[in-house]
Simulated assay, not measured.
Amino acid sequence: MSNPSKPSDAPVVAFIGGGNMARSLIGGMIARGADPARVRVAEPVEALRDALKADFDVPCFASASEAVEGAAVWLLAVKPQVMRTVCGELTAVAQDTQPVAISVAAGITSTQLSNWLGGDIAVVRAMPNTPALLGAGITGLFANDRTDATQRKQAAGLLDAVGPTVWIDDEVQMDAVTAVSGSGPAYVFLLAEAMQDAGVKQGLPADTARQLASQTLLGAAKMLTELDEPADVLRKKVTSPGGTTQAAIETFESGGLRELVDRAVTAATERGRELSAANDD
């Protein structure tokens, strides 16, 4: 994880959109010592502006053009379907100030973003996931050719506030990042639902089944991230020959779990490409 910059060295960051992801990033930045005065937020909903101001003491504005004043880093946290309109409103400022624009919108390419901001703009695509709301996310990053080393460092430092970051060299792979980690928490939630339901069918009280499934998933995730062993090794260590775990694993395998997961990730990847194509000029 990056070390926080000294307040005097830190760029002014403008958040365009003040929803949950922006709130998580702002909270992470402030917790790591960022100067609230150097964080600016554009959010059209007054109640969200008021909450951000009250919680983090950051300057908040109703319009994007006000928020980006003096900002070298723009974090675009608006819905994909309104991204083009928002960028169009900022084209003149982007061309004058040449910021690095960081987008957390799925399916919008760096070329599209740069073009919508007038062209030749440094763009970083970021795909965080919802555990970022708890400071436990992971973010895939891709930078276009206009992005210099300093801007890459600024982007990574900002997203590091909610979890580790990984750089992707080929932008096409960002759709796979979205499919694996961006959408991935929902896969885990679905597994938790299935485990809970199965436990209830075996006679467990619903609250007990929920607690057992949730804590088991948490513990397994900690083992995956904190132990220096890959998933297949950990799986084999808890699968005793002829035991209960082997009976369950064999059922998963014979039922085609691996193939089903592969099809699901492929479907999510292809959907990301469709969303990108739908936004083409």
Rank of each mutant, 00 (worst) to 15 (best):
S181R: 08
D55S: 08
D120A: 12
A136Y: 13
N3R: 15
W116M: 06
A221W: 13
P59L: 06
L218G: 09
D281G: 13
V93H: 12
I168A: 07
V172A: 15
Q211P: 04
L113W: 11
L234C: 04
L260R: 11
V166R: 11
D175H: 13
G118W: 02
V180D: 05
D197M: 14
S276W: 03
T91Y: 00
A62L: 02
L260F: 10
Q95L: 14
A64K: 04
G17Q: 03
V39N: 03
V82M: 00
G70P: 01
G27S: 12
V265D: 02
A267Y: 12
W74H: 01
I168G: 05
A37Y: 10
E270S: 12
G27K: 14
L25H: 00
Q211L: 12
A67L: 03
I138C: 07
K53I: 08
E259M: 04
L260I: 15
A231D: 07
P99E: 05
D280K: 15
K153I: 13
L159R: 02
M127F: 13
N144E: 11
I30W: 02
K6G: 11
P205Y: 06
A101E: 02
K236D: 13
V265A: 00
T130E: 04
T147R: 01
P11L: 00
A198W: 14
T244W: 06
V73N: 04
E229P: 03
W167A: 09
A34V: 03
P230G: 06
D228W: 11
V86P: 00
L25F: 00
A22W: 02
